[in-house]
């Protein structure tokens, strides 16, 4: 049986008709057309589907859409304001913290969660917290550098 739920995504409220077994990832991508969030494994192993729920990073492929009701969901599309890139996004662009870009939305959202929690992280801390986001292109060096640079760019503030 389908059910209607309301999801708050990037500040907007969407009413959607879903099956109770649908994941948040499926609803974001297939119902709301927010395809920036990627499906890399559908098993919670790669981090490409990372989104923020009330400010914390979650794997949207492991979360049922019904469990996201009442939470503030932020996806990669919600990070840049008025078309301007967020400072984290700018750092990834300028420092080459991405190649194919498929893991990038998930990595950027995780970076946002890391820097919100710890505005001036150590490199070690970033590595630990980013360990659930797989990337096959970059070897992670420039990913870590991008997060560290974003921290500096944001003045160590949230």
């Amino acid at each position: 049986m389908k059910q209607a739920i309301a999801l708050t995504v990037n500040g907007d409220v969407y009413e959607v008709l879903i099956s109770p077994n649908q994941t948040l990832l499926e609803v974001l991508r297939d119902k709301l057309g927010l395809t920036g969030t990627k499906k890399g494994c559908d098993l919670g192993a790669c981090g490409a589907c990372s989104v923020l729920l009330d400010g914390e990073a979650y794997l949207s492929c492991l979360m049922l859409a019904v469990d996201a009701v009442g939470k503030e969901i932020v996806t990669i599309e919600g990070l840049s304001e008025g078309g301007d890139l967020h400072p984290i996004q700018k750092s990834f662009v300028e420092l080459g913290g991405l190649q194919c870009g498929f893991c990038t939305p998930g990595i950027v959202m995780t970076a946002k969660a890391i820097l919100d929690e710890e505005p001036q992280p150590t490199e070690e801390s970033v590595k630990k917290k980013m360990a659930g986001n797989l990337c096959r292109c970059t070897g992670y060096k420039k990913v870590i550098e991008s997060v560290m640079s974003a921290s500096g760019r944001m003045g160590g503030k949230q």
């Binding site: 991508r29 395809t35 920036g36 840049s80 890139l85 990834f92 080459g96 991405l98 870009g101 990038t104």
Partner: peptide, 23 residues
């Protein structure tokens, strides 16, 4: 020169379209 990829901005803001993103 160390220049950003021409499609880097689209890849960081979620607008870059991969095959599965097409409907």
């Amino acid at each position: 020169k160390r220049l950003p990829m021409v499609d880097a901005a689209a890849k960081v803001n979620g607008s870059a379209q991969f095959t599965d993103d097409l409907t």
